[in-house]
Each structure stands twice: as structure tokens, then as C-alpha cells.
Amino acid sequence: MSLDPATVRRIAKLARIRVEAGDVGRLQGELNDILGWIETLSEVDVSGVAPLTGGAQIVLRLRADEVTDGGMAEAVLANAPDRVGAFFTVPKVVE
């Protein structure tokens, strides 16, 4: 499975990373090298094996669905690159 330039641009779009036209070729080569290398996994027989999602011995805990924290708008907004009052700002989304 080798990536073509259109696929590289599609991945960049999905990842929300701007890639200049002149960089597509370089990225295509780098990503294909890495993907070619991880291709070795296709030789492993994984039939009947259940996927392991995380730390082996972990059983996720449940807790009561209740509010345990909050009321700290200033702390949440403290690092905002731009804000108006108690809100984050973004470029106009709806015309």
C-alpha cells in the first residue's frame, strides 16, 4: 500500500495540518518509508487473537455520574489565545 500525492493531501486535510504543495513529495517519501517498514506486521498470524487496547492488567473503573469539579471559567480561559468575556473566539463559522 503506497501513498500517492492525493492521499498525502487527504491525510493532511484529515489531520488539519496545512501542507504546502512543495512539501507533498518529501512527505510522501517519508510516510511511504515508514508504512513500508510497518508492513512487516502483515506476516504475523493473528487469527483468533483478541486485540489488546491498553495496559494489560487494567480494568477500567466506574464511578458515579456526578459533577465533581467546575466553576473555574477564569482558569479554563487563562491560556486562550483570544477571548471575549467568558468565551473563546473563532473566525465566523456561520454566514
Binding site: 500500500m1 501513498l3 492521499t7 498525502v8 491525510i11 493532511a12 484529515l14 489531520a15 495540518i17 512527505l27 517519508e30 510516510l31 515508514i34 508504512l35 510497518i38 506486521l41 502483515s42 504475523v44 493473528v46 487473537v49 483478541a50 486485540p51 489488546l52 487496547t53
Partner: peptide, 27 residues
């Protein structure tokens, strides 16, 4: 690079071939 590799192996059509297989090898 790593974000793009991750985005690709999780994307529709490639998830089973890459990500799910990797989780099985992890097991």
C-alpha cells in the same frame, strides 16, 4: 509525521489492516 501516520492508520479502509492488526500483535 507521526500525526499523519496515525491519521492514516485510523482512517476508513485502513483501520483493520493497520491499527486493529497492530493491537492483535500487541496482544
Amino acid at each position: 509525521r507521526r500525526i499523519m501516520i496515525g491519521t492514516y492508520v485510523l482512517s476508513a479502509g485502513y483501520y483493520d489492516a493497520y491499527y486493529l492488526r497492530a493491537q492483535k500483535v500487541r496482544a
